[in-house]
Every structure is written in structure tokens, then in C-alpha cells.
Design a protein around this nucleic acid. Sequence first.
DNA 1: TCCCAATGGTAAAGCTCCTTAACTATTCAA
DNA 2: TTGAATAGTTAAGGAGCTTTACCATTGGGA
Lengths: 400, 400
Amino acid sequence: MSQSYVKEPPTLTDSARAVLRAIATDGPATRPQLSAALQFSKPTMSAAVSELEKYGFLTPAGVNRGNVGRTSITYSIGSKAGLVIGVDCGTTRIHAIATGIDGLQIAEVETTYEPLPDSQRFERVETVLSDILAKCPAQRSDLSCIVIALPNMISPTLARLPNRQRFLDVLARLSETYQVPILLENNVNCAALAEYHQGAARDHSFAVYMQIGVNVGMGIVIDGRLFRGFKGGAGEIAHLPFPWSESEQPAPLGVESYLGAKALLERAGETWKSKAQEAPGDTSKLFAIVESEPTASMIVDRHARDIGNLAAACVSVLDPELIVVGGGVGQNARLLPEIRNTVERLCWPVDIVVGELSNKATVVGAVRLAMDFALARLLGENAKAAFLFSPDQASRLVSV
Amino acid sequence: MSQSYVKEPPTLTDSARAVLRAIATDGPATRPQLSAALQFSKPTMSAAVSELEKYGFLTPAGVNRGNVGRTSITYSIGSKAGLVIGVDCGTTRIHAIATGIDGLQIAEVETTYEPLPDSQRFERVETVLSDILAKCPAQRSDLSCIVIALPNMISPTLARLPNRQRFLDVLARLSETYQVPILLENNVNCAALAEYHQGAARDHSFAVYMQIGVNVGMGIVIDGRLFRGFKGGAGEIAHLPFPWSESEQPAPLGVESYLGAKALLERAGETWKSKAQEAPGDTSKLFAIVESEPTASMIVDRHARDIGNLAAACVSVLDPELIVVGGGVGQNARLLPEIRNTVERLCWPVDIVVGELSNKATVVGAVRLAMDFALARLLGENAKAAFLFSPDQASRLVSV
DNA sequence: TCCCAATGGTAAAGCTCCTTAACTATTCAA
DNA sequence: TTGAATAGTTAAGGAGCTTTACCATTGGGA
């Protein structure tokens, strides 16, 4: 792959690579700590650190004194290691965060709007990017990667993106302006990655994130990496067969039209018709009265059981260690017991919890993806499993 | 992990490891070929080869003469690299194959019987193993791994194995007798691995194998490795929610009772009731008359559509590159067009083909798993993702 | 105040595993 | 018989690690 638009990082020794990875992943550390953790001798560690300092990838960040003995120096990621930007480009909000490759936040920009035509929405991404870069201190201006999260299935051809060409034009301009790799990712996948690294799925090795809100989707994270399938469609559970029985055949996107927030409210409306009061106008109102209003509780419990069926489908195919449920509807802990029961009844017991990151999950995940990509580039590895915009062949993305 | 019962293989240099892996995977080769393929210099290659010859892992296997120039020597896997055994322990048949770690077949034993109680079935495995080892030439007696494929979900606790304790006793005896690692794997997973490496999914990187017969199951292979999920339950699609609609709730194992061969024959029986002729007594008879008999064709097409729904469920969660359909019912190519249509209608187009290995798939896959494990051990890597019987703690398997 | 145990860091030498460069060995065909 | 082509070895050297020994800095106690 010729990435002529980005300069190649220097080739590092194995020891330097290990040190850079350790500090980027686990935070600042001293040479003795690193020697112990990575099993390198003292001279090797000195060489590795000075190699990384030379390139500005590492920088001293404090002195440690114990009860006795010589002081040690704590090293953290240096400014030349670059910064990354994650952007959550949603239907009513763009949220961008810039961090170093160690994840330390440098700047944040958030802008909301009434639903916009795609083209204008895409152009706002350009504004947000220039805004957030303006907020970054000058010495931290070595941008190394941008990740944009979109509420669409991201295949290498971007076939399923509405207004595809418009977006490719924006990408071409961004690529021209910033001269860095630009990765696209599905927003639910990003949220899954965020919950995995910094949310409810910390300390697990294999988690899935089910987003249940207006739309329905899933992200799969295995050993810290997103699982995307062959063309980015893994986790597109809105396509699961529903309804399906001896007498009924599935409809395309049947799950989404049955389990989406709109359908939930419509069912609530139907039920309320026979009553004097007005039906709840949005799902949070529905959940607000769930403990006091038997009708609401009935509707919610039925929804929980159906989410449980959906979860059971995922369990029977994937057998995850943990399921994190999120999204406007899914994040209500009230749903959990019934979801768990249904999964256990149909498959086997699985840990199921609600997400912790709420509506920040997607940006945080986009940033994480950018960090992973940037770090892999510094380390000379190839960051697999991401869709990279390639200016050379703007008609298709490159799977890297 | 202390595997005191097996002696540790020698530590090899990187170059020797690469050579051993290349020959085990791609077959015999000469030093110049290996140098070119692995990017090692001539002196390094000489050193690597003589290192491997010293341990008996490699052996000269022929001289090549070209039109001009010195002859070269082709090296193949040597006898000290060990042999492995894969066993398909089915309900009416035990089939075992012994090969070298390069996959070259050394011996084969097959025995069929009327359905037996589990205990007797397990004990037959012991007989088959001693039979097949007796058939191996004496100089190839360095057994290094046994894989047993079972028609059950293999979790680390073996919780879902009927007659669990009986089987553990057999394993303990086998472990004592042969002093080698014994791995257990689900038979469908094995078949998936076989189709991936030597069957219909050759030249693909991410394939799933759907077995549709008496039972229903799936195996997932990503980049040459089985994907098992957290406790071996990935691909247990018999647990997918079915029936599921606005009015119906799923039953445990609903898919299997609806899509299994038994249900198919029952539906056929129902349909035939209104006719003069007798209903087909097994599924192969049903498929034999499918072109001549409209009733049969109707039933088969309906079945195909439902298999398509099942496939769509897998596609929406996993997005595989290729689906291989096998099993007593699934291997009929007649089903393919309708399966493809259904998947495309609900998700997106996916390559779908029938399996090529028929009822040898499971043994072949078991052997492949054993080869992978044995090779990884020789190379000093840890073969991840397999369930290894551990004699120390016979009550649970170790996930390696 | 000065010494010393404890800890952090460096210098020197050497080992392993790879390379390049130059050579030798073997083969077939002209 | 000679030489072009290919296979393989020898020798020298370098990268990147280690071990061993030493030097440097610290706070506490004699």
C-alpha cells in the first residue's frame, strides 16, 4: 500500500516498540517499572528510552523518590507521537475529541443541530475539524489520524451510504487539507469499542454491544479489536429474520421496524387508546412511568423479552463473554432481568449489563480506533480491520 | 500451564521456525525456494535447515535437477516432528485418521455400529486409537496430539456433555496411556475447519459452515482459526429464536425442531397423507424425487427458504465472506438458489456453496486441529482457542 | 558529618542470529 | 572441455540483546 501522503515513521527496535506500546496503553512509567514489566535488561531499557526520546515519542514527566535509593524518572508519551481525532457524526449532533495516542484528551468540540440534509451535515464535519485543531496547542499539532463515525454500514465501497459521492468529496478535501489517514467506522461499532476499553466491558476479552434505540445494531469486540466481518456488516442485527414462524416469513429489516423506538411508541399508543390518558410521547417518558403505571410496565416488559430474543440470537451465533446493552431504550436497567431470563431460557446464562458511556460512547470509540491506528503505524505494524479512505482511488475504501 | 506429561520441544531460531511452518503448511520445498519465499539469506537458510535436520523435524526427500546448474534438495517434514490423530466420534460411527504435522496421511480406521449407549461409544474410541497406532510404522510413533470430535457443545466444563463423568474417565485413561495432549472439539466446528482448509472454502479468509441434517449447527473459521466464542458455544444456531413474531415467542431449540431432518420428513408425511402414494422415508429419497414430484419440490423449496432465513441470521451477525452448506440435507445443491435469494433479500448477497468433504469433513477437521496444535507446540507458540483435557484437574478442561 | 544500604543508571564485553561478499561445488549443454 | 547457471559454504561484520561490573544518587543512622 503506498501511502505517499503520509511520511513513514522511523523504524524502531523491538525494545523501543514494546516500551512505546506499554506507555501508550498503560500510561506513564519509569525505566525500572518497564524493565520489570517487559523483561528487558537495564541497558536495553536505557537504549530504548533514549531512542524514543530522540524522536520525541517519549518525554520525561516527573521524578519519583522512594524512601531510599536514587530517584527515577517517569516517562510519558511525547508530543511527536502525534495526536488523533475521533468524530461522531450523528443525525443531530457532531462531537469531536482530540487526544494523544495515549488517550489523554487535548480538545473537544460539540455541535448540535436540527436534522440536516446529508450534504450539509458532512460539511459541518469539516468545520468541526478545523475548530478542534485550532483548539490544540501548537506544539501538539502533529495530527496522525482522523476517525469519523457514521450511523451507516461502512463497507469498502461505501455502497450503503446515502449521498455517497458528496461524502467522498468531503473526504477528498479533508485528505488534501490534513494529509493524514482518514478512517470511517460505524457508530455502533465505535460505541462497542468504547464500552470495551473504558466502559462496562472493561476487564473482559470478548464483549458485544447492543444498541437499542431508534435503530438497532450491534458491535463486536474480540481481544480489543473490532470484528467487522467481510465487508463491515457484522453486527447488522437489524437484518435478523423477523417475523419468522411456521406461518410467517421475515421482512427485510423486520427487527428494526418491530424493535425500534418508533415501533415501541406506536405499540404504547395503541394500548393507551383504550384509556383516558394520553400515551407517552417519547421513550424516556414511557420509562419514567414504568414503575407506577402497569400499562407501561407491561409494554416495557414485552419489549425487554423481545430484546432478550435478539440477544439470544447473538449469543447462539457468537457466545460472547458479556453483552452490554445501550442506546436510548437499551440503557434502561429495568430491561435487564427479563433480557437475562430470555437469553438463559433459549441459550445459556450470559453476563448482561447496561452501557456506562451513554451518548459519549461513539466519540470515545472513534478516538480509540484512531489511537490504535496511529500507534500501529508508529510501531510499523499494519492496523488490520479498518476502512481507510484512499485519495488515490476515491471510489473505494481500502481495508487495512 | 505445566504440561509435565509432555516433554518440551527444543527452542528453535526464528528462521528455523519459519522454515518448519512453511514446509508444514505448504508442503516440501528446497532451500532456494524457502530463501525466496521467507526472505532469508542463503547462509541463514542452511543454518535453519541443518538445525531442523538435527532434531529430525526435517528430512531430505528428493533431488531436483533443472536444465542447468547444481541440483537442489527437497526437504519434507521428518519423523521426529511427530504424528497426530483426529477422531470423529459420531453416534453410529467412529472414524480416525493419523497424519504427520504436514497432513500426510499415515493410517486410517473406521468403524460403524448401531447407536450405542454413550459409555460403550466412548470406550470404542480407546479401541480405535490403539488400532490406528498399531497401523502406524514404528519409526513414526512419536505421537504428539489427539483431537476427538463430538456431536456436543464443548465448553471448558463439558457441562453439556451427556455422561460427562464416563467420558472424563476415558480421557484420563487415554491421557495416562499416550501421554500427549488430548483436545476435544465440536464435530461441526471440525467440519468447518476442514471445508476451510481443504474443501469448498479454500482461498477464502472468513467462512462459516452450516450443517443442516438431523441436527443444525454452524462452525466459524476466521483467518484459518476456529472461532469458538467464550465457552465454545459460538455457532450453536439451533438456539436461534424461533418461532418469533408479534404473536409467537421462541421455544428452546425451536430452530432444530423446525429445521431438523425429522421435522422435514414429518412435514412431508403430512403433505403426502392426502395422496395415494407413500411419503419418502428418509431425506435422500425426498431429494431423489424432487425434480419429478411437485409435492417434493414444494416441500424442499420451503425448507430451502427456511435455511435461507437461518443463513440470513448468520450473515446479519457475522457478515462472512462465504457460507458452506453441508450435512445430510444441506449438501443438496438444489437448495442453493433459494437460500441465496433469501439471504440477499434480507441482508446482502453472499457467496453460498455446498460442502465438498461430505461425511469425511469432521475427521479431516479434527486432524487439522491436531496438526495446528502440534505445530504450534513445536514452534513454541501457544495454540489458542482449543479445549485441552488436563489430567491434573480432570473436572475441567483448559482453554488453550 | 559521613558512611552505607538501596536503588537507578552506564560501560564494557560478549552472545545470538541475522546479513553481505566472496568464494567453492555441481550440473548440463555447447 | 569449458562455461553459464544454479546451489551451497566460509568469513567477516552488524544489530540488538544480555551479563557483569561498576558508577551515581538518595535518605537514614552512626
